[in-house]
């Protein structure tokens, strides 16, 4: 009956995923954003982004190892969102809020987009 819940488990696992990313271990996809390259794990991308879910769940794209995003996506905004996926922290600033919002909309990360929108409104 019941279980022993390890309350730190989600954060501990995510930290390890981020360590793997930082050391480029077991990363299985490269994302090109306006000439900049980002290495990541497809499973994390798919779990966090509706856009990546649609891309990688498509049977033709299962083995895709590189992908280029639309040129309207800003690499700094994408970098913030990628960091967020691996850390749960969104490091928003006034100068990057709008580009991050646009990237979040493109990646179909609706909840993050809503947060960016509220952040921008609160600063006006």
């Amino acid at each position: 009956d019941g279980c022993i819940q390890f309350t730190r488990h989600p954060g501990d696992v995510l930290l390890n995923f981020n360590r793997l990313r930082s050391r480029n271990i077991l990363t299985d996809v490269t994302i090109q954003v306006d000439g900049q390259l980002f290495h990541a794990h497809k499973t994390i991308l798919v779990a966090c982004s509706g856009f990546f879910y649609s891309v990688f769940m498509h049977p033709e794209n299962t083995n895709l190892s590189a992908i280029s995003l639309d040129t309207k996506v800003d690499p700094k905004g994408f970098s913030l969102l990628l960091d967020f996926m691996y850390t749960s922290c969104l490091n928003l600033s006034d100068s990057l809020a709008l580009t991050t919002l646009n990237a979040a909309v493109y990646l179909q990360m609706e909840h993050v987009a809503d947060t960016c929108h509220r952040f921008i409104k609160s600063r006006q």
Binding site: G2, I4, F6, T7, H9, D12, V13, N16, S22, R23
Partner: peptide, 21 residues
């Protein structure tokens, strides 16, 4: 632990992969 349905374990749950540095 006996008779309690859910126990909260606050300690680390998995090993820690070393950072890059």
């Amino acid at each position: 632990y006996e008779g309690v349905s859910t126990i909260k374990e606050m300690g680390r749950s998995v090993h820690e992969i070393p950072s890059k540095d």
